[in-house]
Design a protein around this nucleic acid. Structure first.
Lengths: 151, 151
DNA sequence: TTCTATGCAAACGATTTGCAGGGAG
DNA sequence: CTCCCTGCAAATCGTTTGCATAGAA
């Protein structure tokens, strides 16, 4: 694969039916399985694991194999169309790039809440100044207790 | 196993040589392998994966099996002596409870860096004020690029 | 035609589990 | 003496990879 270096991806810009064009626009070879995966991801929105994504993609490409989905997701990540989140013990989750945000999972009810941009920016800045470590939050979820579960 | 419900554990309170007492104090059956694991963990401090912990524990219990280390770590977690962090692609990391802190993993070299207390406190405060969500960071790591891997 | 992507199956790393024997209480 | 814990090997789960072939450019 010889993908374009990552470039911006605005999910709202692409209708699911034009998944093929989106792929081409990002320098990817356009194949049925890839179209199926991207289309499924565009339609689904939010986060989904590889198994679920395979199931959705089968709607457009019945014989598609899970290994292909993994490979496709990797390609989509390389060109900046998708990314993944580690949300705990289970499998990692895929989502469209541009949809990235640091999220928190409620320990009690499992609710997922986005963490405000400003709070994240403040953290990144503070950590970089103190340790030289440049955080790229969004690939991991944080744990906590949501407003409803705490008295 | 019939462990005590989790109770506070102050790592500073326990010398590595008294790992057996610490186990007994928390309602665990005291065996050589368990003593070896806890002792290794007390000596090591910080975070370590199961493989590394096994290696350290072998110093006290040469024949100890990795499966036993996993089982022991689970017991230690149940009684509140240890906990684990999800570090992303790699194996999860074990550490003493009471030593919990938010850590960052370098995307390039895998280095683990603790995130300064103040930065975390600032984040927790900010998020609670804006969303009512009370973060308990420490169960998941954040991702980023460490000072050495970024130009 | 050329070269990449796919399906399949097998490899993989991390972790868990079934079982029979050994050790703690 | 009674269970629990351990070592071992095999199973499991999520993910990756080698290979021969199908398919995009």
């Amino acid at each position: 694969m010889r993908p374009e270096p990552s470039k911006a991806f605005d999910p709202g810009e692409w209708e699911p039916e034009r998944a093929g064009e989106a792929l081409r626009a990002h320098g990817c070879r356009v194949t049925q399985p890839r179209v199926a995966v991207l289309r499924a991801l565009l339609e689904h929105g939010g986060t989904i694991d590889a198994l679920g994504l395979t199931a959705l993609a089968q709607r457009y490409e019945p014989g598609i194999h899970e290994a292909t989905v993994y490979r496709t997701v990797n390609v989509l990540s390389e060109v900046g169309i998708a990314s993944h989140v580690h949300a705990g013990h289970g499998p990692s989750l895929v989502r469209l790039a541009g949809d990235e945000q640091l999220v928190a999972v409620c320990r009690d009810c499992g609710a997922i809440a986005p963490i405000p941009e400003e709070s994240v920016a403040q953290l990144v800045e503070s950590v970089e100044a103190r340790t030289g470590f440049l955080l790229e939050p969004g690939h991991f979820a944080l744990e906590g207790v949501c407003g409803e579960c705490s008295p």
